[in-house]
Amino acid sequence: MTAFTPLSLPEVILAIPVRHGDARGYFSETYVQPLYAANGIAAHFVQDNESLSALPGTVRGLHLQAPPFAQAKLVRVLAGAIFDVAVDVRKGSPTYGSWAGARLTAEGGEQLFVPHGFAHGFCTLAPGTRVAYKVDAVYDRASERGILWSDPDIAIDWTLGDGEKILSDKDKVLPCLKDFDSPFVYGAAC
């Protein structure tokens, strides 16, 4: 049975599916809609995405999409490892600007659920890291938003020390949270 654990931001949930293994390898049910819904992950996923990051220290994020294309995400690692992060960007939330994170590995099969109203990002911890994630809305370029990964007011501990980070040009110039006009309001539906 999959284990579900809310993190320090209780809407952000760590799911760890059971793996049944033998000498051949393992089998795991990585997503079972009724089970996930019963444990706080009721999103209706409509698109699967995959990324490959060649080098450790690659940061992708912090990303989100504005309503009506807001995306909840269920993230897992197919190869390598990441430190995965969600930041609460819901105006009026008692945890606005706070973050929760978890290490996700291919070996462990951990998954992180990032709900609407949270920016998402990750940093790769191993070479050749492949990340897959389900989203509950299709990609919409006009709805793209983001927050600077290194915003000092959020102060995410990316667990990589002072090593060099690899970012896209777009992610290098995202605004800090104090300059971000969030399209999300605490308690409002998307």
Rank of each mutant, 00 (worst) to 15 (best):
A42E: 11
V46L: 08
Q47D: 01
D48F: 04
N49T: 05
N49F: 04
S51I: 05
S51W: 03
L52N: 00
A54C: 07
P56V: 14
G57S: 04
V59H: 03
R60L: 04
G61M: 12
L62H: 06
H63Q: 08
L64Y: 11
P67Y: 08
F69T: 07
F69R: 11
A72G: 12
A72Q: 07
L74T: 00
L74H: 00
L74D: 06
L78C: 06
L78I: 06
A79E: 13
G80K: 09
A81E: 15
I82C: 08
D84G: 11
A86Y: 13
V87E: 13
V87D: 12
V89K: 10
K91Q: 12
G92I: 02
P94L: 08
T95E: 06
Y96S: 11
S98A: 13
S98W: 09
A100I: 07
A102H: 05
A102F: 09
R103Q: 09
R103G: 03
E107D: 15
G109W: 09
G109Q: 05
E110G: 12
Q111A: 01
Q111D: 05
Q111M: 07
F113R: 05
F113E: 04
V114R: 06
V114H: 01
V114N: 02
G117A: 10
G117N: 10
F118K: 06
A119V: 03
A119K: 04
H120W: 04
F122G: 06
F122N: 02
F122P: 01
C123T: 15
C123S: 09
T124Q: 11
T124L: 15
L125Y: 10
P127A: 14
P127H: 12
G128T: 01
T129Q: 00
R130T: 07
R130H: 02
K134G: 00
V135H: 05
A137I: 05
Y139D: 10
A142V: 05
S143V: 10
S150P: 06
D151M: 13
D153Q: 13
A155W: 06
D157R: 01
G161L: 11
D162R: 13
E164F: 12
I166F: 13
I166C: 12
I166H: 14
L167Y: 01
K170P: 01
D171S: 04
K172H: 08
K172Y: 07
K172L: 14
K172D: 03
L174N: 05
C176A: 06
C176I: 02
C176Q: 12
L177W: 03
L177K: 01
